[in-house]
């Protein structure tokens, strides 16, 4: 019986950790604070408290996940029950007061308006957390001897109740073209350039290993260097892929557009 009761603890731990990671990555991605205004219970907070509220929620989830994993203390077990029961209430309140806002449970992926599925999910999670109260063993034992059938059944029920999965499928199907997506950091593109064959072929000519100018246009990032003859060597690195296309041109310093006069 303990086996059955403990079977949902791994699901709870994984979900709580995913929630924390997603919330922290939303805050870290440097998004507009205003965008948080459409995410979850943060909407119910005044503007300057939205970010700390999201972070606090993430921290609480992480503490609960760690507690479930390493101990069977009733504090963490009942804490999880309270957390999900409160979430259910908050989501119901959110749906009533701000029907346009998403639940924010998994960061910006959860930006679809709160529906019955999200609320159903927190109800199911509250039930799972209640089961865990009487499991009596720490979470790591459930990981060590998993009851596969029950755990997978629990995960499947949650997947059916997750609007985020639809959102992820939609995003994969309708991805913005690369010229509209935020590109990788300049340093990442430079590292990719330096691991390319084109770079090795031209590196010996360059006067410096760091570019004197770098800019992004559409799907390409350009790096401009000078070679020993003081001509410009420009590399164009495509933004997509780990081994992107690299193009290179050597432009002599005098080759600004020239205008030749036409004689009659």
């Amino acid at each position: 019986m303990t086996h059955v009761l403990a079977s949902q603890v791994p699901v709870l731990i994984v979900l709580l950790v995913l929630g924390t990671v997603a919330k922290f990555s939303v805050v870290r991605s440097g998004r507009e604070p205003g965008e948080l205004a459409r995410l979850g219970p943060a909407v119910l907070m005044p503007g300057r408290l939205q970010q700390p509220a999201l972070l606090l929620c993430g921290v609480v989830e992480l503490v609960l996940a760690a507690g479930l994993l390493v101990s069977a203390h009733p504090l963490f077990r009942w804490g999880t029950v309270t957390f999900f029961a409160l979430s259910t209430y908050v989501l119901l309140e959110l749906r009533r007061r701000r029907p346009d806002a998403g639940c924010g449970c998994f960061g910006e992926v959860s930006s679809a308006p709160v529906g019955l599925r999200s609320i159903g999910r927190t109800v199911v999670l509250t039930g799972m957390a209640l089961m865990a109260v009487w499991a009596g063993t720490p979470g790591w034992t459930a990981f060590a001897e998993p009851a596969w059938g029950f755990t997978l059944a629990g995960a499947a029920v949650l997947a059916v109740l997750s609007p985020e999965i639809d959102e992820l499928v939609d995003r994969a199907r309708h991805r913005a073209p690369c010229e509209q997506r935020r590109g990788p950091q300049e340093g990442v593109s430079l590292a990719r350039l330096k691991s390319s064959g084109t770079w090795r072929a031209h590196a010996a000519q360059l006067a410096a290993t760091e570019p004197y100018d770098s800019w992004r246009e559409l799907c390409w990032r350009f790096f401009a260097f000078q070679n020993h003859e003081r001509d410009d060597v420009v590399f164009a690195v495509h933004l997509a892929g780990r081994r992107p296309a690299v193009r290179v041109a050597v432009v002599s310093a005098e080759s600004l557009p020239e205008y030749t006069t036409v004689s009659a």
């Binding site: 100018d213 800019w215 350009f222 410009d232 590399f235 432009v251």
Partner: peptide, 13 residues
Amino acid sequence: VERRRVLAAAALG
């Protein structure tokens, strides 16, 4: 930045 146009055009042909 004027130079960027010339360089980008040269690199992408």
